[in-house]
C-alpha cells in the first residue's frame, strides 16, 4: 500500500495511505505533483501543511478515514448550489464526531477542510455553525460569536427598518 507522509504546521507527521489522502483535493494535487517531479516512482511523498496544526489535521484525517468509502462528491468549488449540501444527511458518526468540539475547533476545522478541499467535512462543519445562528436573536448571535455591531449612527435602525419593510410588504 502506497503511503504518504503529511506534516502539520507544528511538525507532527501522519503516515496515511495515498488512497485515503487522495480523498482530499489538495493532497491529491500535491501527491500528483510529487509524482511528476520525482525520479523515483517508489519514493514516499512528504507534504507539509503549514496552515493546519496537528490536532486539527488529526481530526480531518480521522473524518476521511471514516468516510473513505463514500462516493466522491464533485468538488466543484464554483458551483454554489447551497441547497444540495444542506440536504445531505449527517450520519450518527458525524454527530458523535462533532459533539465534543467547541466552536473554536469547529471553525479551525472549517478552514482546514476548505484548505484541504474536503467537501463533505466542510459541509457538516458549516452546517454546525449555521445551527448556532438559527433561532437566535441578533443580540444572541453577536454574543455567541463575540461580534460587535459596527453600524454607525442610525444604520442599525435603518437595516432593521429595511427588513421590516420587506417583511410587511
Amino acid at each position: 500500500m502506497a503511503l504518504v507522509r503529511v506534516i502539520s504546521s507544528d511538525g507532527a507527521a501522519f503516515l496515511v495511505s495515498q488512497r485515503l489522502a487522495k480523498r482530499s483535493g489538495k493532497l491529491k494535487t500535491e501527491i500528483e505533483t510529487f509524482r511528476k517531479s520525482s525520479d523515483n516512482s517508489e519514493a514516499q511523498p512528504e507534504i507539509r501543511i503549514v496552515t493546519i496544526r496537528a490536532e486539527i489535521l488529526r481530526l480531518v484525517l480521522q473524518w476521511l478515514q471514516q468516510h473513505q468509502n463514500d462516493p466522491v462528491l464533485p468538488a466543484n468549488q464554483n458551483e454554489q448550489d447551497g441547497r444540495g449540501d444542506a440536504e445531505m444527511g449527517q450520519s450518527q458518526w458525524d454527530r458523535d464526531f462533532l459533539a465534543p468540539m467547541d466552536l473554536g475547533i469547529v471553525m479551525e476545522l472549517i478552514l482546514a477542510a476548505n484548505h484541504l478541499e474536503v467537501k463533505g467535512l466542510l459541509d457538516i462543519t458549516c452546517k454546525l455553525v449555521e445551527s448556532k445562528i438559527t433561532g437566535r436573536t441578533v443580540d444572541e448571535i453577536r454574543t455567541a460569536f463575540k461580534l460587535k455591531s459596527d453600524f454607525k449612527g442610525n444604520e442599525e435602525e435603518q437595516t432593521r427598518l429595511e427588513n421590516r419593510w420587506c417583511v410587511e410588504n
Binding site: Q80, G82, N114, L147, S149
Partner: peptide, 24 residues
C-alpha cells in the same frame, strides 16, 4: 466564501435577520 456558505444555509427569514448583525 466560507461565511457566505454558512449564511446561505440559513432559512430566508434568518438570512434577513443576519443582515442586522454587522456590516460585513
Amino acid at each position: 466564501e466560507i461565511l457566505c456558505k454558512i449564511l446561505s444555509l440559513l432559512s430566508t427569514e434568518e438570512k434577513f435577520r443576519a443582515r442586522e448583525v454587522c456590516k460585513r
